[in-house]
Design a protein around this nucleic acid. Structure first.
Lengths: 152, 152
DNA sequence: CTCCATGCAAACACTTTGCATCAAG
DNA sequence: CTTGATGCAAAGTGTTTGCATGGAG
């Protein structure tokens, strides 16, 4: 029994829901399932260009919005003045280490379970948490090592 | 023995460090110590206008940068396409409930201590965490109540 | 008087909108 | 064919830069 890759599963699911499967949509889904780091719109554009996929920025933004609305990808923000996007995988305890020196981003699975907090917030504030963002900022291994190169 | 308010303490500290105490700088510090919610640059501008404080956007942005660099305020981002700023108080376990319906922001003190995570990340990834961001998204009490008004 | 702080205009970066055209189903 | 997807131009929003002027110390 063959196991379809994530991209194929997502695309089949979109097709099943009656959405049109265009070259761009396909390429975007494959790009996201392949990439480990969160991508900005411009990076996406240039990545797709390398695969000779047509790339109008308007269309990219619209397609990103489409994928976000269907919970296939999610938006992230690392205070860079732009949004980044990454595939929304099954495991939800997925966070990032953002290096404030080299801007490198590493994904991490954090063991802590904050689900008890959801309930706490529900009772104390009447707030119904749908999701949360937990991101760590600091210095990555290589920037800690070569301390002399740290900016500022 | 009189207890100086936070704004005064901050301003005195800036003065002691040799920074010029201008009307805007003063007004900004007071605004931040007074306000409970994180503020965007435009909100700040209009707030200051109400106090008849001169408000050029360039100056606002430069002053915000000045205060961020000196760790008096910090930047936050709630995926709105703009940055928000709030006073950086002594307690670090300060997070937010962001309502995805009405965009209301509530500050919360979260009991969980994630400091063990810092060390874990240090050992497993060689990453030195300087700070982290933990924000909750969902529906606030009033939006949960009047469920019918939920957008989309 | 000396610099830091400020205002103004313009530039920037990222994102969105309107509208005509194109192509997936 | 029909309707969603796309490209292009232009506008929108938030933020930054260059440069001359102004004011705190």
């Amino acid at each position: 029994m063959e196991k379809a890759d994530t991209a194929t599963i997502i695309i089949d699911s979109l097709r099943a829901q009656g959405y049109r499967i265009t070259t761009l949509r396909c390429a975007l889904v494959r790009l996201f399932t392949r990439s480990s780091a969160p991508l900005g719109a411009l990076e996406i554009t240039s990545s797709l260009e390398k695969e000779d996929v047509s790339v109008n920025k308007t269309t990219i933004y619209r397609e990103l919005q489409f994928l976000v609305e269907r919970s296939i990808i999610r938006e992230l923000d690392f205070l860079e003045g732009k949004k980044r996007y990454e595939i929304l995988s099954e495991h939800s305890r997925h966070h990032h280490l953002v290096c404030t020196n080299c801007s490198g981003i590493t994904c991490v699975d954090v063991p802590n379970d904050l689900s008890s907090l959801h309930h706490a917030l529900g009772t104390t504030h009447g707030f119904k948490v749908t999701h949360y963002v937990l991101e760590f900022f600091g210095l990555c291994f290589s920037c800690v090592s070569k301390g002399s190169c740290v900016k500022q």
